[in-house]
Design a protein around this nucleic acid. Sequence first.
DNA 1: CTTAGTATTTAAAATAATTAATAAATAACG
DNA 2: CGTTATTTATTAATTATTTTAAATACTAAG
Lengths: 404, 404
Amino acid sequence: MEDEIVSKKSVVDYKKSQYRRGVLAELYQSGLSTLAQLAKGLHSSVPSMTNIVEELVEEKWISTFGTAVGNHGRRPVLFGLNPQNKYIIALDVSTHDTKAVVMNLQRDVVYRKEVDLRLEDTSQFADNLLTLTENVLTESGLKPSDFIALGISMPGLIHFQSGMNLTYRRINHSDDSLGSWISEKTNLPVFVVNDTKATVLGEHRFGLARGKKHVLAINIDWGVGLGIILNGDIFQGASGFAGELGHIQVDPEGELCHCGKVGCLDTITSATSLMRRVRRGLKEGRASKLSAYLEKIDQIDIENVIEAARQGDSFAIDILYEVGTELGKGLSIAVHLFNPEIVIVDGIVVKAGAFITNPIGQAINKYCLSDFRSDLSIEISQLGEKAKWIGIHAYVLDQVISSL
Amino acid sequence: MEDEIVSKKSVVDYKKSQYRRGVLAELYQSGLSTLAQLAKGLHSSVPSMTNIVEELVEEKWISTFGTAVGNHGRRPVLFGLNPQNKYIIALDVSTHDTKAVVMNLQRDVVYRKEVDLRLEDTSQFADNLLTLTENVLTESGLKPSDFIALGISMPGLIHFQSGMNLTYRRINHSDDSLGSWISEKTNLPVFVVNDTKATVLGEHRFGLARGKKHVLAINIDWGVGLGIILNGDIFQGASGFAGELGHIQVDPEGELCHCGKVGCLDTITSATSLMRRVRRGLKEGRASKLSAYLEKIDQIDIENVIEAARQGDSFAIDILYEVGTELGKGLSIAVHLFNPEIVIVDGIVVKAGAFITNPIGQAINKYCLSDFRSDLSIEISQLGEKAKWIGIHAYVLDQVISSL
DNA sequence: CTTAGTATTTAAAATAATTAATAAATAACG
DNA sequence: CGTTATTTATTAATTATTTTAAATACTAAG
């Protein structure tokens, strides 16, 4: 019954809704646009755009930003997403801490909080994350009605359809996903996205990969993740698991991985395993500046290794080289399969700069067919940790807009 | 100047053109549709569709196919692509022969020819292919004006933007691609597509993978190729090279590949290398029914091996098992990266049936994370060689329609 | 400082597309 | 076998959108 009422006038409504979404998406990407630009971009006319835009201004989605300068003739009015009235919360969850960021529609950070909440596979974690969220809601000083959505990025296999994190199953409350549980409690739409996918989306929309059609972003952190942009969109695969590079087998005689298989790329290249090999090497008596840490060997961390490499420590350099080579080998597989225009390297390891990118580049040269390399550039992320918040923001806004 | 005339009335023209393409695409997929179905599918109204459809009938693109049966009420008129007046030539080029097929818009084969023209890296090949094309044009008995386009599928890295085959560079006339050269000579639009990509498109549009969003099709032939459908579309990558599974390294101490690298998957799993190992095994005196061929060892071919396996020959079974396992290993990498819903096995080796699919399935079970396997089905192509023609047809028609 | 030139905005007219209404076709039912 | 219910096709009326034209706003040149 209700369905029939909705389907009345359906065609007109559908088209209008398409235009509304189009305008918001366009303004999100462009920052500021004139009516003429919007009309052209959406294959519509200026008077039509005037209508749509007026409506969206009314609803506080967009606002005017003065007029454009420079050209001859009458200066056109600029429109952009409203920097007030509507806010998004981004929770960047990892295994070592959690960051909460409140942003307006223009991605300006209006509130930030970093807490010592580590992702672990317990139901307690969900409770803590909810508490954090509620704290952010009040501490930010904004009206509850000003928040339009909450985005959470975290590692793990996140089932696209249900939002369940299958790697950390206990954080889901019974058969409800963490996301829908928090959504219920906070009365906000919640979107959960894999951290690497958020990162690549950030890099694609507002970073180095802007405007590229096919992008790979490799994120080297506590594990290895591959974020993929295809045809300008984040690529999820059938269930949301696409890009699981960390668990392809690279060494049949390698170490046992936590996933249960043997010789996964993760067992060689993740920061965890890198540190394991550093400690083993030091214990075996390898000559290195890092030997100074021998007594307190558990306190040594990856930044120490990178620092040592910078100072010319050959043990540290070797270790990084080894990791970079294996990463490059894994990446060349992905390059052969995806044929991207650009590969972005991201994560903790980027602090190692050329110590890690050189071997990656070398391995790609060695293991990739030349035709794949000719139009391919390999870059280090410039957005850094911001890429993730921006990616969450873009992901959430995409979802919100498309549900409008 | 002309540009300005075109851009007059541009928005209206654009929308109409969108509808026209939409109707053709819809009818191509559905076979037959009613006005109401078209209107619903394209978010438009019945009177509008009536207009568009009338125009397309006028232009001989579509025609009526009586009325639908079964329902109450007045029976709706069915429309479908016109089976007369417009034809497509598909050339299926491989390293062992070339097939030419003329099809109408409904994919009915109206003329077929198989010639002993083998793909080789010479300019002579281009001349021969042109001759073949011209013969087909005349021998088919159709009016030249009835042909709307020519599609060519062939192995190799085919540069998406230029249509150049980079694996067989000499078939291109100077700096003109084979495709545009033939196009010039025949006055027909020509589209060149990689054979594996054509196959997966065929399987997706009218085969086992119909309606699936993400599909991998592995084609085991003189080499290994991976065809990829993502979000319902053929995935080309930045330059058209996506899916090059054959040249990922699987064995650092393996054989030298013709591509210049070492231990490519191709060196283990292609039909060529399979035969090499069969011959080597026989020479080394492995017990096998195939030993009967020892004197004429060069005449033995893959079908003999498969036949031997069917008869229980354990050497043949072992060889196929080995190949299947390596293929499965390679495929699991692709599964981890693409997270598809279905994997289709295609090519010569399918005649081996379970002898090849069992080890593939087993390897996927062994090397894939369980979450990737739960919704994944592995099937053997049912379309067989037809998949490629149908894929060429679909590819060509997609291109023609989108240029309308 | 005025005027010519350029471009946007607003308003009005023309066109196109949708919805609503009516006519036509067909199966089910009494 | 005719009537009714149901569905589709066609036409008319209404609504929406585009196009055209006029008005406005601004730059730059004389």
